[in-house]
């Protein structure tokens, strides 16, 4: 079955990102397809590679990047939400005159249409948030 997942909260403050991660791992293990993971609201903060948690804690951002690489996940960060919160890839940084980009590997910045499209193309959408 084709699943799409939406994540509305950033890492650490809320459990949403952890719950979504555990759900996706279980779904993949069962042979389901994750057609897209869409990061919205503060969820875009899951995509900054500048996250440096204490060494004895999970690195939520790196964990997403590694999962994406292993399973070829399409992880999309909403552009409007990302701009508000200071998440930028190279193109966004250039366009907005920023002195750096901070997006982690495996994430891409795109429009909200990607969320609606995921809803159209998947069999189920599961939302994790606060």
């Amino acid at each position: 079955m084709k699943f799409a997942v939406q994540i509305n909260e950033g890492p650490y403050t809320h459990q949403a990102s952890d719950s979504a991660y555990n759900f996706i791992v279980a779904a993949l293990e069962k042979g389901h397809e994750i057609i897209r993971v869409f990061f919205y609201h503060d969820g875009v903060n899951n995509a900054t590679r500048f996250t440096t948690p204490p060494q004895d804690d999970r690195n939520i951002v790196t964990r997403w990047s590694e999962l994406a690489e292993k399973h070829n996940l399409d992880m999309v960060v909403c552009v409007a939400a990302a701009q508000r919160r200071g998440i930028a890839d190279e193109g966004e940084a250039k366009r907005n005159g920023l002195d750096a980009d901070n997006i982690a590997p495996g994430f891409r910045i795109s429009g909200l249409g990607q969320l609606v499209e995921a809803g159209i193309q998947s069999d189920r959408v599961v939302v994790f948030g606060d």
Partner: peptide, 16 residues
């Protein structure tokens, strides 16, 4: 979580 995935697949739609 495996059961969580099963319920999502078995039901018709999901509201969080």
């Amino acid at each position: 979580y495996d059961g969580f995935v099963d319920i999502v697949a078995e039901t018709d739609n999901v509201q969080s």
